[in-house]
Structures are given as structure tokens and as C-alpha cells.
Amino acid sequence: MDKTINIKLKVWRQAGPKAKGAFETYELNNISTDSSFLEMLDVLNEKLISEHKEPVAFDHDCREGICGMCSLYINGHPHGPDSGVTTCQLHMRKFHDGETITIEPWRSHAFPVIKDLMVDRRAYDKIMQAGGYISVNTGGMPDANAIPIAKKAADEAMDAASCIGCGACAAACKNGSAMLFVAAKVSQFALLPQGKVEAARRVKAMLGKMDELGFGNCTNTGACAAECPKNVSLSNIARLNREFICAKLKD
């Protein structure tokens, strides 16, 4: 038998980017503890539709924690109270019967609300476009193992690259800073020989874009790394600082 719980939801409703938002309270009964958090929201939306009410808008896509599309600030934590998971991997067994669950959108100057719980995260795409890539001339595909790479560097680069760009770091940060995201993206290239070539140009362009888009200044509180669904390490930020300072001193 499935265990079921009754919950109360406090959901942020906002009709559009310029509209004034407010919390609405909904009660849901007999929610299976085996269902995922997003399935619970699907149940809520079906209920709202059957009552001829506007369903709650929220972002989601792959529902297996790799696309970075889901967001939601649940009970004071981005991606909810569980650690190392995205909202779509969060299950209702993490909540208890009769609990009030507060669901808010990411709140950051650079992530304006589009509707309800959906925010515009194109700021991260703009940072990537500013330099988060490696320039490759077209031609024959080189052999994958032609360039020797130390295991440690490969592992660290892979850990940095596990960032899915969901925006939880900036959402959790009291300074609205996107440093952990930028640090992960700078690190995944800077650690590898293919990326090192353009490292100085890349770090200046990406950090400049981050500042321009209105993200805050990092004060090393570590809330980002504590909330990151992919457990991206804070030491990447030290690497970003190092890369940036060295690049500027070389100018």
C-alpha cells in the first residue's frame, strides 16, 4: 500500500512579468509519498483545471535531473530540502502529513519572473555565449586520446562540467551572484589543454557579462555550493578568481 499524505501548498502566483504577485493557498489530499514533487504539482494543476481555474506555471523538461530546466524555491531551499537533487528528483516522502509547503520562484534581479513560478534564465545563456566555448576549426575529427590529460584534471573538469545551469546558485545566494555557475563553466575549460588556449579571453568575457547582467558580487558565503543539485565545489570559485586576476595582470 502506498502511504499518502495531506498537504497545504503556499504557491506564488503572478500573472506576468509586470503584474503584482501574491501567495495563494491550496490544499491537496491523498498525495502518494512515492510521487515526485512535480507529479504532485501536476495533480494540483489537474485539480485547478477541473475547477476552471488557471493552472500554476512552472518550468520542467527531462524530469531526470539533467536538463536544468526545473527550478522552484521550496521551503527556503532551491530544489527543496533534499541535497544533491533537482526539484524533479525530489519526492513527496521528504514531506510529512499536514505540512505547509511554500513554493516560490527564483528571486534574483537577473532572473525576472515570467509567470507564477517560471523565471527568465536567459542571463546564463548570455554568459555562455560571451565565452563559454572552445573555438575549433572545422576539419578532420582528432583522436580523442591524442592529447594526454592527467586523470586529476580530467576528473575536476568533469565535476565542474556537471553543472546544468539551473540557476540554483544565484537563487540561493544572498548577493544574487552567479559566481558558482561562471566558475564551473570557466573551470571545465581552463582545466583542459584544449580550453587553456583561450582561457584568459574567456574568463574576462564571461565575468564581464555576468557583472553587466546585474548579478551580485560574491562574498564567499558558500550557500551556492551547499544548494547546488550537482554538488559543484566552492573551490571552482577560487579558480575563477585566480584565472581572472592572472588574466588582468597580464594585460
Binding site: K10, H109, G216, N217
Partner: peptide, 15 residues
């Protein structure tokens, strides 16, 4: 600057 970057609306629940 950091206060501004946080946006106008503040979180209702923070932990």
C-alpha cells in the same frame, strides 16, 4: 550592489 542584485521581491521563507 548585492542588495539590488537580489531583486525587488524577497523570499518569504529562507533557511
Amino acid at each position: 550592489q548585492n542588495y539590488r542584485a537580489r531583486g525587488k521581491e524577497r523570499y518569504a521563507v529562507t533557511e
